[in-house]
Design a protein around this nucleic acid. Sequence first.
DNA 1: CGAAAAATCCCCTTTTCCGGTGATTTTTTG
DNA 2: CAAAAAATCACCGGAAAAGGGGATTTTTCG
Lengths: 207, 207
Amino acid sequence: MIRLFIVDDHPVVIEGIHSLLQNERDIEWAGHAMNGQSCLGFFMNNTANIILMDINLPDMNGVDLCAVMKEKYPGVFILGLSTFDQGLYIKKMMENGASGYILKNSPKEELLNAIHTVCDGGIYFSGEAGEALKHYQRSEQKEMPVLSRREKEVLALIAEGFTNPEIAERLFISQFTVDSHRKNLIAKLNVKNTASLVKVAMDHKLI
Amino acid sequence: MIRLFIVDDHPVVIEGIHSLLQNERDIEWAGHAMNGQSCLGFFMNNTANIILMDINLPDMNGVDLCAVMKEKYPGVFILGLSTFDQGLYIKKMMENGASGYILKNSPKEELLNAIHTVCDGGIYFSGEAGEALKHYQRSEQKEMPVLSRREKEVLALIAEGFTNPEIAERLFISQFTVDSHRKNLIAKLNVKNTASLVKVAMDHKLI
DNA sequence: CGAAAAATCCCCTTTTCCGGTGATTTTTTG
DNA sequence: CAAAAAATCACCGGAAAAGGGGATTTTTCG
């Protein structure tokens, strides 16, 4: 069962999609919000599998809301909504963790297809910009090795510019241990050195 | 296992959170302090992964305490606590290294979520999350020095993990020149070394 | 044109990083 | 409990970066 939530400031769109999905047995209507605040409020006490998110919202834009939501609820899939082809914003939303986007005037079948694709972990693009954007998520969402708590701590301090001895002092461990963590991180993330380690870690929002 | 410490001058809050976390297996109660001095004293001989820190303390405010703690123990995550929405102070705490804030009247689930998010290196906002995040992001984008075209080229290659000689070869210049650019970048962005250079550059979307 | 900024090049010393190769202890987990 | 994973500690040698110094040439722009 897919729990679907929608954030859009157009009552028409909310109502329209609601009625479109009325008879879908595997899609449950979690609710709707007409601005970013309400969306955040809803998710404090509720949950959903997928959010259909308009790019233009009264209080904050969908790009930022997308980032906040994925930060707080990484498991929720987000599908961008727009009335026309807003390539730049779509691109930014993808960078912020969205799983695709769809045009509001898409036929029912396409909407259902998009919802199911996204909820299965896939990427869905509506319109022409799709092709140009497909390369994005492949590189962004490749599976990352799991970092231990200690590794993340060390990684954060490395990125702040501390040397091994300095980090060792702060974490009350030996500099050899810090260096081990550093080497493990470089090996785990398959990078060349500390500089690229920081870049890749930030690319994947590990920092 | 998360070791949690709390700094708050309200016994009710300490007791309340203590009992809320009583049955959480992955959260260990490190202790509590009712003012900034006690907190500093505690960390001289003890440690913790996360500090729930009230903004109003009898001897010093949470903003300053946050700065001191992050200076001394960068590995400790700090989650601001407040009874109501104290936007300005939250913003300052974030600038001083806090990882977010949460309202004291938040439900248990939200508290747990916040603790886990922060301990995983994330950022958590309670209440008017959107507003708080906007302020935070604005403060992040303080004015940056202008980088020349060549500096950006070098910077990009540094972030990719290439060494000075490798970059020199690719740009058909001497490794001394590359090193000069590197040093200029470190000076311009006011960072300590290459690792923090990459981080700051990415923070400000220079890469 | 002429000054300022950018880009280039060179050397030296000290510190740090990187790669490899071990190991033990603690914690998590099946 | 036993196996696996994480965290810890240690040494070595070569490579690279950090920090300092100075210098020249090219480009940009008022």
